[in-house]
Amino acid sequence: MPLGTLERSAPSFFRQGPSPLSRLILYSALALFLMVADARFGMTEPLRKAVSTALYPLQWAVLQPVQFAGRGAGYFQSLEAAEQSRDEAQRKMAQLSQRVNQAEDLEQENARLRKLLELRERLTTPAQAAQVIYDTADPYTRRVMIDRGQTAGVELGSPVLDESGVLGQVTRVHPFLSEVTLLIDRDQAIPVMNIRTGARSVAYGDPIAAHGGGIELRFMPGNADVQEGDLLTTSGVDGLYPSGMPVARVIGVERRADSAFARIYCAPLAQMQGARHVMVLKPLTAELPPKPAPAEAAVKRKGRR
């Protein structure tokens, strides 16, 4: 029999040393003693410090990938949070800007409405408020639609004003809407009076004026006493517009030697573009006495003879 196959350990009958149960009890008691001693007296504290110092480089090397990954994730999260904060700030700034614009529009609208109310208190002619809905689709005319019609008592030829002056005249009436022809329309004319001189004339619409639409005094003599800055108001001779309503201001006078008439350009005082709230007046023809019948007129003529 080869020597390598022989059992070198002693038989179990002759084994020496404590039994496994004894060793378990001994080790358990030793562990319990060390725990109590460490908890009460700190006997293993120096050993723990030494082991911790010896293992610190290994711990640091092992933790570096984890910390690097954490810092990278934190960086990208911070970048994403910063971008979200920036987008949120931009959105809030846009909302605040929109609110500021709305507040400015409301402030201007309130100021115009207060001026309209003050103008209505000064008027002796019946008037009602209206709102401009939209401009007409015809590009060759200067007309707008308002939200008052026959059901509201609007009549054909009614003057229309805003807070600054005469805007135009009602030229078409529908049951719930009315069409207003602005003063700058080429087919519109209005009798005016120069406040400084008292001279009366007629102003015609000039939609292709250099300043985007105005009115012009036509058939005025070349030596007429008209100056830049003169205020023009309604004269009231047409039986439609009340007298004394602001219409326009003279901005240019051209006197040419080859013409007997002067060209006088005026800028309307009313807001021809972008008007929202207006005042619709009753035509003065409604307040005039009715015309006499033909028979009565003939009798009066005979009586005068």
Rank of each mutant, 00 (worst) to 15 (best):
S9P: 05
A10G: 11
P11V: 00
S12H: 06
S28N: 10
L30T: 08
F33E: 00
M35R: 04
V36W: 15
A39W: 06
F41Q: 14
V51C: 09
V51I: 10
S52G: 14
A54R: 14
Q64P: 00
Q64W: 11
P65E: 01
A69G: 13
Q77W: 09
A81Q: 14
E83P: 05
A94P: 05
S97T: 08
R99F: 10
D105A: 15
A111I: 10
T124W: 01
T124N: 12
T125H: 12
V132M: 07
T136M: 12
V144R: 03
V144N: 03
M145G: 04
T151V: 09
G157F: 02
G157N: 05
S164R: 15
L183R: 01
R186T: 09
R186C: 05
D187K: 15
P191I: 02
P191Q: 07
R196C: 03
V202D: 07
A203Q: 04
Y204Q: 12
G205Y: 02
A209T: 02
L217E: 04
R218H: 12
P221I: 02
V226L: 08
E228Y: 00
T234C: 11
G239P: 11
L240Q: 13
Y241K: 04
P242S: 13
M245L: 15
G252Y: 06
V253S: 08
R255A: 07
R256D: 08
S259Q: 09
M272S: 09
R276Q: 14
V278S: 03
E287L: 15
P289T: 13
P292W: 05
A293R: 01
A297S: 10
A298K: 08
